[in-house]
Computed example of a mutant assay.
Amino acid sequence: MGNGGRVVLVTGVSRDLGRRFAVSMSAQPSVRRVIGVDVVPPRGDLGDVSFVRADIRNPIIAKVIAKEDVDTVVHMSVIATPGSAGGRHTMKELNVIGTMQLLAACQKAPGLRDLIVKSTTTVYGASSRDPAMFTEDMQPRRAHQSGYSKDAAEVEGYVRGFARRRPDVRVAMLRAANVLGPIVQSPITSYFRLPVIPTVLGFDPRMQFLHADDLIDALRHTALSDVSGTFNVAGDGVLMLSQAIRRLQRPSVALPSFAVGGLGSALRSARIADFSPEQLRFLTYGRGVDTTRMRNVLGFTPKYRTDEAFADFAASLTPTGGRSTRVIDGLTHALESAGERRRELEGSRHG
């Protein structure tokens, strides 16, 4: 530790959660200095955090770690939304190449003691064959084809490789459930912000949520502890999608799966919501994770249950009862044309 306290490097501070976490770490008595790294400066106030403008895809990150005598790295820059990154290709680069470069830099840093990585329960995927609750040692029931879940699975693989090569470094990974908060921008928050919520006909998936404040507390708790390993982090309990929509007081429309998929593509190209195939699977099958290890081994309990995290998020939205007929008409039209396209495609296949 040397002269009085840790030196912590946090990636992904241009986004709100990364910035808030870095600021909360800088207030800890056992922390001497926090360095926040990202490609663009954060919009909000960083307080005592030193900002370094660096792209973690670039080897320069190794110089930052060496020069600042960093002993703790908290990697928060694996992102779920291609829109914010400038498209899926850039998102994959930032997530996967960025993590590889960061871990290569960590490997060369003899003074590094702790590596904390924010991962996601999305690594378990969502399918009809899933267990009721995933524990940390379970694998997804179907291989990740693309998108955020595939990135997260690759990132976790690289982190495990790093842990084998540097057994002297404590490594902890937090698999966070869908994070909710008034200012969180993610595929699931943009879905719940739609004026009319499309659901998959015949399915009512179970969901777990994690309040943004609890994510920050869990990361801080992990960074300041000495626990290693992988932990599911989610608020207690589950919420059915139908219950969630009722609490939002928003109209919903139940559609066959292909129509929700077609609508998803339309919303994605209009930059309204990010509907990936994995999001569609989640809205069909849902997902539950077991949080026993979080409580018993990591020693962390979220303040908000799943339903309370959702209620706090819902309170920040305005109900859309009245002005939604225009939107429903637009959606219906989009779906009808999606249905026609599908029939044409099927006709040409059989023709």
Rank of each mutant, 00 (worst) to 15 (best):
L298I: 10
A153R: 06
Y191S: 01
R281S: 06
S77E: 00
H221D: 08
A176R: 13
Y124I: 01
R113D: 13
T332G: 13
G235P: 06
G87P: 04
G202R: 04
A152G: 01
G299S: 10
A334F: 02
D137C: 12
G262T: 04
R323W: 09
G229T: 12
S24D: 14
G235W: 00
T72E: 09
D236L: 11
D38K: 06
I61K: 11
T121L: 02
S337G: 01
L115Q: 15
T122L: 04
G47W: 12
V8G: 12
V171H: 15
K63Y: 07
N58L: 01
I35V: 15
E68M: 03
M100G: 03
C106K: 08
A223N: 04
L103S: 02
S337I: 01
I79K: 03
V13K: 11
D217P: 02
S348D: 04
L201N: 09
K63N: 13
D71W: 03
V74A: 15
L215S: 02
L46G: 14
L194A: 07
T72H: 10
I35F: 11
Q185T: 06
R160C: 03
V64K: 11
M133C: 08
A109P: 02
M240C: 11
A266Q: 07
S316W: 05
F192G: 09
L103T: 02
V23F: 10
R43G: 12
R246D: 11
A176E: 12
V227E: 15
Q145V: 08
A311G: 10
G157Q: 06
S149R: 00
V64I: 15
R142C: 08
V289P: 00
I188H: 00
L317C: 10
V70E: 04
T318C: 06
L248V: 04
V238T: 01
S257L: 06
T122Y: 03
R206A: 04
D55N: 15
M294C: 14
L115Y: 15
D151R: 00
F258E: 10
A273I: 07
T318V: 13
R343K: 09
K118T: 03
N3K: 13
D71P: 01
S228F: 05
P205L: 00
T325P: 01
G2T: 14
E344T: 10
G264M: 02
